[in-house]
Structure formats: C-alpha cells, structure tokens
C-alpha cells in the first residue's frame, strides 16, 4: 500500500477540480442507479399503474401480489432457474477466464511459427457478425441432439477470442519474462509456472473478464431460449421472457420483479469480484 501523504495543502485549482470531479461522478452515479430504482419501484406496483406511468419513484403495494403472479405461472420456478443459470454462467466464466489466459500466455511467452497467424485468426473470429451464425450453431446442436442440454452453453466458452485478445494485451506490459525464466531455473514445469506464477499476476485482468463473461453468459437469451425448451433446464432469463409471451396481457409488475430477481445474483458475483477492480494499488507486477 502506498502511504497516504498527509497534510498536503491543496491549491484553489485542486479544490475546484475536486468539486468538479465529485459533481460529475455523483451525476453519473445517479444515471447509473436510475434504472435499478425504477426496476425496484415497478416490482412493487401493479400492471395498470405501470402502463399509465412507467417511470415513478413512489413504491406501490403490489409486491406480494406480483410475487404470487410470478410463481403461479407454471413455468416460473426461481430455484430451478437460478440453479441452471448458475451452472451455465459459473462454468462458462471459469472456462473462459482460465483458457483465455492460457491461450494468451501461449501467444506472449513463447516463440512459435504459427503464433502470428494464430493471433490473426483469433482477431478474425472476433469480427464475425453473430446474427446469422447463431442459427447455424442451433442447427448443428439440434442435429447432434444437444438441445435441452447445458453443455452447448458452457463448452464453447473455452474459445473466447475477445477475452484472449484482452489477456494478451494485458500480459504484454504486465508480465516480465524474467520471472518466468527464474521459475524455469528453479525447475518448475511450464504448466506449473503458468498456474502458480502467471495466474496471480493476471488477477486484475481475470477479475475484469470474469465479470464481463459472467454477465454476458447470465443475460444470454437467444441461444438458450431456442436450445433449452424443457422446464427443468430453463434459465432465469428464459423464465422472464416467457412471462412476456402473452402479448395481449402482459403482467409488467411481475416481469419487473422477475428481472429484479434475475439481476440480484449478478450483483453478488460482481461485488465479490469488484475488490480486484477497485483496489487502490496495482496488484500485478513482480512483488512477491
């Protein structure tokens, strides 16, 4: 930890800067919190009042009723959805982060002939518009009978080109090869060096990408929706989307409650990982 410099006298310019910074940050924070407050408020209101006045800061009295509507629906069972979503997102996130770091390490730490082309391939994969390929993916999974199976939502996470790219970019300045060399001198195997020396240095990057990967996986709807059609394998977002299915009679109060329940677990993960991104000092580097 860097020692706090005590008793620094601030010039008027610095003071003005701090006021400006705080005002901007507080304004941005309000903007960020706004949708969550609306969501929270609407989860307690009844559908007609949401329809005639969607944005309100006054809590309603309909929370219990909304919960009853939510759970009365045959397809909405929060525990099943939570379990499935957690399995998919936790596994997918772990695979993405671990294997992307490993792949990035291969790209940074070693000199091999196909390294350049391989990196170019990873970048190219990132650039393909996913709109049309997702249907091809579905048809493929359908053909090998992997519908209603969680694996097609987990295993592809091993190849996450965007994450590999990030890890590589992070690793280049953050990982001094001298450490790797000295580990080799100590007789550590390459794999062990990676797990015990490289991974800790990559912590801030891994935490960042873990949050992104988890959120993306958790909120993913299109592919899960067409692959998972049995109640036992529904994820949380699928259950919420089914509440929306009856276009003539939409229970908005219950939907907001559903969305809220869906968002809550993300918060837990996010706050658990956020210590790595809010740390005031560098975590990486050579210090041991």
């Amino acid at each position: 930890m860097a020692k706090k410099s005590i008793g620094i006298r601030r010039t008027p310019g610095q003071k003005a800067f701090r006021v400006f910074a705080y005002v901007l940050c507080i304004f941005l924070a309000c903007l960020s919190l706004f949708p969550f407050i609306i969501m929270l408020v609407n989860a307690t209101r009844d559908t007609p009042s949401i329809q005639s006045n969607p944005i309100s800061f006054l809590f309603g009295t309909n929370l219990k009723r909304n919960f009853e509507i939510l759970t009365s629906k045959d397809m909405f069972s929060p525990w099943v959805g939570l379990k499935n979503s957690l399995i998919i997102s936790v596994c997918a996130t772990a695979l993405t982060v671990y294997f992307s770091t490993l792949t990035a390490y291969a790209l940074v730490a070693y000199e091999w002939k196909l390294k350049g082309p391989f990196f170019a391939l990873i970048l190219a994969v990132m650039m393909i518009p996913a709109t049309v390929t997702s249907i091809g993916f579905y048809q493929f999974m359908y053909r090998i009978k992997w519908t209603n199976n969680l694996l097609p939502l987990i295993l592809p996470a091993i190849a996450a080109p965007g994450t590999v790219f990030f890890m590589r970019q992070f690793m280049i300045p953050a990982l001094p090869m001298e450490i790797v060399q000295s580990a080799r001198v100590d007789g550590a195997s390459e794999f062990r060096t990676f797990n015990q020396i490289v991974l800790p240095i990559m912590k801030p990057a891994m935490a960042t990408q873990a949050i992104f990967a988890f959120v993306a996986s958790w909120n993913n709807l299109f592919i899960p929706q067409i692959l998972l059609t049995k109640k036992e394998v529904y994820t949380m977002p699928i259950m919420v989307s089914l509440l929306n299915g009856d276009i003539y009679k939409v229970e908005y109060g219950a939907i907001y409650l559903g969305i809220l329940l869906t968002v809550l677990p993300i918060f837990v993960i996010y706050f658990a990982l956020s210590k790595y991104i809010i740390a005031g000092v560098a975590l990486g580097g050579v210090k041991e």
Partner: peptide, 21 residues
C-alpha cells in the same frame, strides 16, 4: 410440451427446425 416465447423471434427458428425433422 415445448414453450418458447416469441421474444426476439426465437419461437419460429426452433419450431421450423423441429417441423423439418
């Protein structure tokens, strides 16, 4: 029973594939 919401147009591609089979 298979229920897929029409959200994002997900119902039709899935139904189409199943019908074709």
């Amino acid at each position: 029973t298979t229920i897929i919401a029409t959200t994002d147009g997900a119902y039709q591609p899935a139904l189409d594939a199943a019908l074709a089979n």
